[in-house]
């Protein structure tokens, strides 16, 4: 039986911890600590090291999901967590000031990993904003000279998280 390690990253509050909790077959491992800065307006706790969850695909493959901290000061954890990873799910919180810039920042920081593996972009909190629309995200990806799957998701729903995982695995298999 094969095992796949996937990484979930994205802005603080984008729903990384929620996504892993929504789909993990075992109680997720969390490293939440109290927020002491401006983020406290949005949420009381934030991931400072990693989240971890696992699930089994229909064909018996085991998937290990590692969630990164969102804040850039925890960039060292990003580098640790991608080791041995086979793909990246990037969650972009569309209710933030500049979701396109957020997407760029993570694509840039994970560029080496993405080049070797694959990425799926999940847009969250789409109901809280009208722009940018899906075309804006695809246009922005054009600047990167490539096209990645972009999905509008509600990470509280297991089926939406499953959709991103399946899309990522397909991307990796057909790369």
């Amino acid at each position: 039986m094969s095992e796949i390690k996937l990484i979930i990253t994205g802005t603080p509050g984008a729903g990384k911890t929620t996504a892993i909790a929504a789909i993990s077959e075992t109680p997720p491992v969390r490293t939440d600590q109290a927020t002491t800065d401006d983020l406290a307006d949005l949420k009381e706790e934030t991931t400072v090291a990693m989240d971890f969850g696992d699930l089994t695909l229909e064909d018996g493959q085991k998937v290990f999901l590692y969630g990164t901290p969102g804040q850039r000061r925890f960039e060292f954890m990003w580098k640790i967590l991608v080791q041995g990873g086979l793909g990246l799910i990037l969650l972009v919180d569309c209710s933030r000031d500049d979701p396109l810039a957020d997407m760029d920042m993570y694509l840039e920081n994970f560029a080496d990993f993405i080049e070797e593996t694959g990425v799926v972009i999940g847009l969250t909190r789409r109901d809280e904003c009208e722009s940018p629309d899906l075309d804006d995200f695809y246009e922005r990806l054009d600047r990167w000279g490539t096209v990645f799957p972009i999905l509008e998701v509600d990470v509280r729903k297991r089926e939406d998280v499953s959709l991103m995982i399946n899309a990522l695995i397909s991307t990796i298999e057909f790369a």
Binding site: T36, V48, A49, R73
Partner: peptide, 30 residues
């Protein structure tokens, strides 16, 4: 802070305080 911000320090040699603060938050949480 537990979420990785520096508050105060006394160092006899130069060390990257912002990076260490974030890392110590992660290490203790782990």
């Amino acid at each position: 802070t537990v979420d990785g911000h520096d508050v105060t320090k006394r160092f006899k040699r130069e060390m990257p305080v912002a990076k260490l603060s974030a890392m110590m938050g992660s290490v203790l949480a782990l």
